[in-house]
Computed example of a mutant assay.
Amino acid sequence: MKITVVGGTGLIGSQVVRKLTASGHEALPAALSTGVDLITGKGLREALEGAEVVVNLANSPTFDEKSPDFFRTSMGNLLDAGAEAGVGHQVILSIVGVDRVPRLDYYRAKALQEDLLRQGPTPYSIVRATQFFEFMDAVLSWTSDDDTVRLPATPVQPIAAADVVDAVVEVGVGTPLQGIRNVAGPDVFTLDELGRITLAARADARTVVVDDTAGMFAAVPGDVLTAGPDAHLAPTHYRDWIRTDR
């Protein structure tokens, strides 16, 4: 099967390309570095030629009020080019709870991307994942100083990027869902608890202080970032992963 992986050079995309190729599929990475521009459409027709499936992992360069324009234009161009090329399955990676956090520009933008895909001409699948293990260091950096890290007590259920890759590949080579598959890690933490686990594993002496106004996830209500009962739970535990991640 020929599969074009848009954003195929990033954290998830590069692993998706490798896993698809190892499974015997023809996986073509499409990104700015390979001559494909989702905003102008340059190189898109060539990248989709002969593709049976498009896996769209491209991300907005910003997480602010400009992000909806990125997803509106890129999704529109990709759907039009896919229909012209005869693509039979469009897949995107989204976020668990994305339609329940209207205060965040980026979440509104991803919800828009989902809506455009649903309304498009091609059978589709949406994989919604929780926050990646790999992003925890960035989360700690948002509200930290030399001595203290301030984090809200927001419940989270993080997942390893490698487990997200497995989910995306499984959905991409399968029958279009015409709906959503939620994937998450096996454990629920509060974000401040996850911060303490991370700092301890890094031998970082800073103190985590609960601050329910700190950082992007302070705007997330309740347990929105945790998976529901229908979610597919990945096998990798954060405590096991953090011990080996260096």
Results as ranks from 00 to 15, higher is better:
202 R>H: 07
148 T>M: 07
81 A>F: 08
98 V>F: 13
146 D>C: 12
33 S>Y: 02
65 E>D: 14
30 A>V: 02
232 H>K: 14
83 A>V: 11
15 Q>F: 09
169 V>G: 03
104 L>H: 12
229 P>M: 10
175 T>S: 14
9 T>Y: 03
175 T>I: 10
216 M>H: 06
148 T>S: 05
63 F>K: 09
132 F>N: 02
230 D>L: 13
40 T>Y: 06
233 L>Q: 09
30 A>R: 01
49 E>C: 12
29 P>L: 00
88 G>V: 12
231 A>T: 03
43 G>S: 01
204 D>E: 06
170 E>S: 13
152 P>Q: 02
193 E>W: 00
246 R>A: 10
108 R>M: 06
36 V>W: 01
46 E>F: 02
186 P>R: 04
119 Q>C: 12
132 F>T: 08
123 P>G: 04
84 E>D: 13
100 R>M: 15
121 P>M: 14
185 G>S: 05
177 L>M: 02
124 Y>H: 11
83 A>W: 09
236 T>Y: 05
166 D>N: 11
239 R>H: 15
143 T>L: 01
17 V>G: 03
34 T>M: 01
121 P>R: 15
20 L>T: 05
31 A>V: 03
128 R>P: 04
150 R>P: 04
156 V>G: 04
199 L>Y: 01
21 T>M: 01
166 D>V: 09
68 P>V: 05
121 P>V: 13
209 V>P: 03
220 V>R: 07
80 D>K: 14
240 D>C: 09
8 G>M: 01
186 P>F: 06
15 Q>L: 13
170 E>A: 15
236 T>L: 07
23 S>T: 12
245 D>I: 13
92 I>A: 11
175 T>W: 11
164 V>Y: 08
166 D>T: 11
206 R>M: 02
186 P>T: 05
99 D>E: 15
204 D>I: 01
206 R>D: 02
174 G>C: 09
194 L>P: 01
99 D>H: 14
64 D>A: 08
9 T>G: 04
215 G>R: 00
208 V>M: 00
34 T>E: 00
70 F>N: 08
134 E>S: 10
39 I>C: 12
121 P>A: 15
86 G>M: 10
189 F>N: 02
70 F>S: 07
233 L>G: 05
142 W>Q: 11
